Amino acid sequence: MTEQRWYTIKDVDQLDTPALVIYPHRVKQNIDIVKNLIDDVYRLRPHVKTHKNSHVTQLMLDAGITKFKCATIAEAEMLGMANAPDVLLAYQPGGPKIKRLILLILTYPATKYSCLIDNQQSAKAISDAAIENDINLNVFIDLDVGMHRTGIIPDDEAVKLYKYCAELPGITPIGLHAYDGHIHDADLIERTQKSNSSFAPVLKLQAELKQKAFTPIVVSGSTPTYSINAARPDIECSPGTFVYWDRGYQSAFIEEPFLTAALIVARVISLPTDTTICIDCGHKSIASESELSKRIFFLNAPELKMKGHSEEHLVADAGEDHQYNIGDVLYGLPWHVCPTVALYERAITIENNIITGEWLNIARDRIITI
């Protein structure tokens, strides 16, 4: 009798592949875990880039989470559609994105939106748009604490930018944003040391702003540094990947208690040689930015060695005298779940090992309605 594993789908014959499948009971457990790792749920501001759907958002809202972070206008609109109370667009809007953000604010008045700023030119453009539409928009100063992609160094220039924004009509600076996605050391001690080092200038900047009568909130962190930042007082924490987890984080951060909750189900479609198998899981099915060995890990076929990858096919070395047959079902854990989810318009839900429905990943699109 075949062993019944947590991920096995009894009616998998009804599922076309490749398919993104989600296990809602494990998602709920991850939400409970992230809540239990912090002293106050009010300090949680999860990033929705991983799940991109209203169903997970609702589970978080039901759990008492009221603040969210996102990276795209579509993600921001998905949150507005869910009546999320507080949404930070962790991106500096420019060009048409400013108009779209303004329209979001006007369309979803139950949601309080804010965004990032790291220079005076952008601040002025957003201020002008806000004035034109008779609104006031809260903004966070985006700080570069080591990621080196956007943001301003947390020094005197950041103080000047904060004061500049405070003097502009239409916008109000309310905080600092410090994303530390560059910190992903496997060793927790090293990770903590690097986190403390990158965060020290933020605390210094916050103290300087308080001396000037400002009261900046600090939004910081990612999933790898979540437990570190959760231990700091009065910091809003923004983990994202925790909700689904993946092979990359599972392998790197063994102390984290989160459960893998999203898989790619695939099938063996060809046996090109005596030792290789071909699987219907190409670039269009799994995030492929990493080396070939770090794209997907098959839970029920851990010995497979990936040999080749193209748009629709994945070739793996199964070894001599392997027992794989055409049609065999494989359950794959993505190494990087966030961009993998973005490849699928829908996720199939699995409960009690049975297909129960689907969750539309509506925020994978660039535009929902706005």
Rank of each mutant, 00 (worst) to 15 (best):
Q4E: 15
W6F: 08
K10W: 09
Q14Y: 12
L15A: 05
V21K: 00
I22N: 01
K28P: 06
N30Y: 11
D32E: 09
I33F: 12
D39K: 13
D40T: 07
R43A: 15
L44T: 07
T50W: 00
H51P: 00
N53S: 05
V56K: 05
L59S: 05
L59F: 06
F68N: 02
I73P: 03
I73T: 07
A74E: 00
M81Y: 01
A82I: 03
A82W: 03
A84F: 04
P85H: 09
L88S: 04
A90F: 08
K97L: 11
R100T: 13
L106C: 07
P109N: 09
P109D: 09
K112C: 14
K112I: 12
S122D: 14
K124L: 12
A129S: 07
A129Q: 09
I131P: 09
I131H: 15
E132H: 15
F140T: 03
L143S: 00
D144F: 06
H148G: 01
T150P: 06
D155N: 09
E157K: 10
V159C: 11
K163E: 11
Y164E: 03
Y164K: 01
E167S: 12
G170P: 14
I174Y: 09
I174E: 07
G175V: 04
L176N: 05
H177E: 13
H177D: 11
Y179K: 04
Y179Q: 06
G181H: 05
H184G: 10
D185Y: 10
R191V: 01
R191D: 00
T192P: 03
N196H: 14
N196A: 15
S198W: 01
F199L: 05
A200G: 05
L203R: 13
L209W: 01
L209Q: 04
L209S: 00
K210L: 06
I217K: 11
V218Y: 02
S220N: 06
S220M: 06
S222Q: 12
Y226L: 13
S227D: 12
P233A: 15
D234V: 06
P239G: 10
P239E: 08
G240A: 15
R247M: 12
Q250T: 10
S251E: 15
F258Q: 01
T260Q: 10
L263P: 02
P272A: 07
K284E: 12
I286Y: 02
I296Y: 02
A301K: 00
A318E: 02
E320L: 14
Y324E: 01
N325S: 15
V329M: 03
L330Q: 03
P334Q: 08
H336V: 09
V337L: 01
V337S: 00
C338N: 15
P339D: 12
I348N: 03
E351H: 14
T356R: 09
W359E: 02
W359M: 05
N361R: 01
I368F: 05
I370E: 03
